[in-house]
Design a protein around this nucleic acid. Sequence first.
DNA 1: CGCAGGAGTGTAAACGGTTTAACTCCCTTG
DNA 2: CAAGGGAGTTAAACCGTTTACACTCCTGCG
Lengths: 356, 356
Amino acid sequence: MPRRTAPDSGQQPRLATIRDVAHHAGVSVATVSRILSGTYPSAPATRAKVMRAVRELDYVANAHARGLAGVRPKSVAIVVNSVVSPHYAHVAQGVHEEAAREGRLCIVGTTGGDPDRELAAIKLMRQEQAEAVILVGNIVADDAYRERMASYARALAQAGSQLVLCGRPPLGADVPAVVVEYDNTAGAHAITGHLLSAGHRRILFLGRRTGYTTPDSRIAGYRAALAEHRVPHDPDLEVDGTMERSEGHRMMRERLDRGPRDFTAVFAGNDLIAAGARDALRERGLRVPDDVSMAGFDDLPPAADIDLTTVHVPHEELGRTAVRLALRNDRPGAAQHVLLGTHIVVRDSVRRRPGV
Amino acid sequence: MPRRTAPDSGQQPRLATIRDVAHHAGVSVATVSRILSGTYPSAPATRAKVMRAVRELDYVANAHARGLAGVRPKSVAIVVNSVVSPHYAHVAQGVHEEAAREGRLCIVGTTGGDPDRELAAIKLMRQEQAEAVILVGNIVADDAYRERMASYARALAQAGSQLVLCGRPPLGADVPAVVVEYDNTAGAHAITGHLLSAGHRRILFLGRRTGYTTPDSRIAGYRAALAEHRVPHDPDLEVDGTMERSEGHRMMRERLDRGPRDFTAVFAGNDLIAAGARDALRERGLRVPDDVSMAGFDDLPPAADIDLTTVHVPHEELGRTAVRLALRNDRPGAAQHVLLGTHIVVRDSVRRRPGV
DNA sequence: CGCAGGAGTGTAAACGGTTTAACTCCCTTG
DNA sequence: CAAGGGAGTTAAACCGTTTACACTCCTGCG
């Protein structure tokens, strides 16, 4: 027996369907579908009738029915740690822009940095049949995790969705994923060089976090620049901490508490750390750049506010590129790797070392 | 003739369906569906067979088919101006949190502040059959717009989705929308009172924008506080501008260029304006709070960075409340209005007016 | 022994679209 | 004048689920 048995509770909200439109216009559903999709020829008179019915009934096609009927749902999924963090927000902005331009809608999942929640989010996106699943942000480069991620990439490819890793290293050539990165190492190398050229020799690095890809590659650039300038590398100048403002504050405070200041410049793992460190310096009566030079990484909002020389990362372009590659790439399954460049933004936070 | 005629191009990606699982496990699709939904009794042996098949085929249910089959799609839509703006980002964070807790996924649309794009986004969300559509942000309180919005609210209600307005004024008692606001006027009133209590009498207001609901209600609070303290209201102290950092800079620069400084304190329409204004002051050698006292509104990232006394707005709670009300509200169609409170956060940006 | 009733499963009808194949006109064309 | 063909339309199959209803056992009770 048909399910729509009960006309008792007429309260059930029911949207106009394509059948209603067809009936209203006195044509068949196929005609309505064709006219609305606009891909087939139709007589102007029929067209007018149908459009009028659509308007009068306020008809919008049910996205689920359409998706089910084989039209690939026009959606892009993005999975980030958090939507408030400027880093993710700017990449997401790029994703939204490009997705909107391409007429796709965006499904957003947040993970809070938890790998399990990340995998759960991917599964959800797979159910949704998103055209592309874009993963943003750094994560532990743990082997088991990489393996799981690779298998998800394959599952997604099989389902016809493209996995995109945005701002994290590739999983391997055999894994069907597009990778859009920016060059952390080169950026860190360049800005460390900037500090070295200003005569600084003892440069404190704030925000080491071994095992995490982003800080790892930034510190690699830092070390490479030191080596190139024949400045001895002192591991004691590398301070462990995460990439938060409060951590920057803590690291600098503890450093200053420890004994006399033994550095003339600071390279913060990102702008947030720089902002926190600057606060800690000020609490001790030290000013940037008069007493201490400072550089950051990211060029996100706090940087301009505190006049910080930093490495500009093309966050939004990262997001746009991710979408573009995912959608252009008609054959999900191909691995691809794009590396975007960075550049230094000079502001008033670095002084030439006195007496050099 | 069945459509799946062509076994020629076996390249077509095809996910495992419930039929595959049923076949693999040697049971009917209904049994699989029931076991997976977990709401019907089933024999342990059957259960095990099915679960094994699911695992082996890596089956995930197609969200569209499920949505179509009557299970209301578990999704919440949020429409914002931009995802990088901290204001929207924090509200969105609250929405994401609560949606995740409720097992809903989030569809995000951005408008760039364009009413047409906003309406287009709503239409898209309606197609997606989102349970709730949450609109965040202020917008021109234009009559034609309000009328269109009201009609969308009715259309959504008819489709079984709940419209939520977050941080904007209600459309009217007869419009089926939930409104979650915070009290702009009370907050502005309180913080203006704070400046007045410190002895300030000439308080510059930056960011007037007549016709826009948020700045309008903030300036209303400012004026009310002045009146209450019997301080004459000088319209010349209200400066027009939008709520951006660059605008804050411009407004203050132009003010200082105009002639001698005729105010001792500044109440910025939001923290971004405050940050920009502070920069402009510094360029003229004026410091906050030594030379000029300053207060803002919002308590978003730039505020803590620049040590700004400001009005704390419960952004994330706004988002959480929006989702909670939308989902609890089983009968979409009821209008509802919630007003969340704000409070002052005192930092180091206000000094007692010298000589008072 | 007959039968009620419950547990477990299967069958098939929806859900609301898209699309293939067929069909109807109507106009050329040989 | 019959055959051919294109434009416009329709009927019906199909997408992958959920679920109402039917059916089959099996148990327990009068």
